[in-house]
Design a protein around this nucleic acid. Structure first.
Lengths: 126, 126
DNA sequence: TTACAATATTCCAAAACAGGAATGTAGTCA
DNA sequence: TGACTACATTCCTGTTTTGGAATATTGTAA
């Protein structure tokens, strides 16, 4: 997950892929969602999500290295916060896609009760 | 990579993570970029990107299952096309982020020649 | 300093993933 | 039908990634 300066097209693709891979983890998405509400200490994330401390710490480090979260020391603890609202824009776009798909599937199913063939339905459902 | 109907919050997070993981691969991003220009047969992708046929076929299948590309048989060949412009919206958002970061780093470096301490720079660069 | 709390890091095992080679399948043409 | 082409799938291997346990680091308080 190198943080090299972008020069060639291929390198920037790699950077994009790296960022997507940071978001391609269920636990990290849960943590981000928790941080969306408000910043939180590591220990709070551990408690709320019932995860191991080392696990949370590693995931937060990955996201920090990717520039997705900020951190701020507060005495003994470290408060993490979402550093770039980009994260939620990306997730919302994906969720919108799922909504569109769910709606079109529902539309097709509704139509199916009005007499469209199974073949057409299966094709429309991909 | 299940395509289950979404019910709980956690399941939808998982679907989002799955979609990001499809995009978290350099080869798949290259293929998508190629398909952005115009639809292409598998053999064309193999030639343009100098990849193995089995490799391309597998990546296209993954993206097809994820609903990111469409396919259409044409005689002996199969033409793939980008099925959801969402892909490019996502990539563009990520690229914009990288641009913002690159610019702010450049700004800081420029300022550094005007006499700001290394400590400040390092902190600003994270 | 010592003891303790919060977080980070290292090491390990299991699971997931990408790519190559070989094989399977489906369409075309003769 | 058989030969050929385009694509998909299976099997295998090396690499990466995740999570847990143990350990290390950093800060606080006495």
């Amino acid at each position: 997950m190198g943080k090299a300066v972008m020069t060639s097209r291929s390198e920037s693709f790699e950077a994009v892929a790296d960022l997507f891979s940071v978001l391609a983890d269920l636990t990290r998405l849960k943590i981000l969602h928790l941080l969306e509400g408000q910043p939180a200490f590591v220990s709070a994330v551990v408690k709320r999500l019932k995860l191991k401390q080392a696990n949370v710490s590693k995931h937060l480090s990955v996201m920090y290295d990717a520039g997705l979260v900020d951190r701020e020391r507060n005495g003994n603890q470290i408060r993490y916060s979402v550093g770039d609202p980009l994260v939620f824009e990306l997730c919302n776009l994906v969720c919108q896609k799922f909504h569109r798909e769910a709606q079109s599937k529902a539309r097709i199913l509704r139509r199916s009760r009005l007499g469209i063939s199974f073949k057409t339905i299966r094709k429309a459902l991909r």
